[in-house]
Each structure stands twice: as C-alpha cells, then as structure tokens.
C-alpha cells in the first residue's frame, strides 16, 4: 500500500502508523456524558467500504493525515493533513 503524504509524496505503508477511525467526535472535555464518551472511546462505525481514518507519517514528517480508504479493496481515494493549515482553517 502506498500513501501519498502531502508533505513527503507517495510513501510505503511501512512508514506510517495507523491511528484509527476519524469520524468519532470527542465530547467536550468537561462533559461527563457516559454514552458520549463510550461512543468516542470504544464504539466504531467499522464500515465495509469507504473509511475515514487517521494515519501518522511516523517514519517521515510525523504529521497526522486524514485518509479516505476502501476497507474492501484498500484503495486510497484521498489524503489530506488532519490538522488545518495555519491561517486557512482548512485542510490541505
């Protein structure tokens, strides 16, 4: 599998560290809503098909990337930075 890091270009799977589902939303830190925290920490949509997920380019620039990948075929549709670029409020 090759992942195209927006910084470093297409790099081999071996350079990346999987960081899991990217659709979960972390509750407000002060929230004590047990269901919401359960949903964030434990539950996963785990789709068969397109999956939004985080990968860290651990053996490269160390940026977290937001990757859209098919869990049935491993085809990668889209790779962007997980963190918005400074000043743009948008992902690359």
């Amino acid at each position: 599998m090759l992942i195209s890091c927006p910084h470093c270009g297409p790099r081999d799977l071996a350079e990346f560290s999987y960081q899991g589902d990217a659709t979960r939303i972390r509750p407000d830190p002060a929230s004590t809503d047990a269901k919401a925290w359960y949903g964030y920490v434990y539950a996963r949509p785990n789709p068969a098909g397109r999956h939004r997920e985080f990968w860290q380019h651990a053996g490269g620039c160390r940026a977290h990337l937001l990757v859209v990948r098919d869990t049935l075929t491993h085809e990668i549709y889209e790779v962007t930075f997980a963190r918005p670029l400074p000043g743009t409020g948008e992902t690359a």
């Binding site: 599998m1 799977l13 999987y18 899991g20 589902d21 785990n46 068969a48 999956h51 997920e53 990948r69 869990t71 049935l72 075929t73 491993h74």
Partner: peptide, 9 residues
C-alpha cells in the same frame, strides 16, 4: 488497519 479484504501487505 481496518480491512474486510482477506489480503495483507
């Protein structure tokens, strides 16, 4: 990584 494909890398 999440996968339903019975193939690895």
């Amino acid at each position: 990584y999440n996968s339903y494909a019975q193939r690895g890398n």
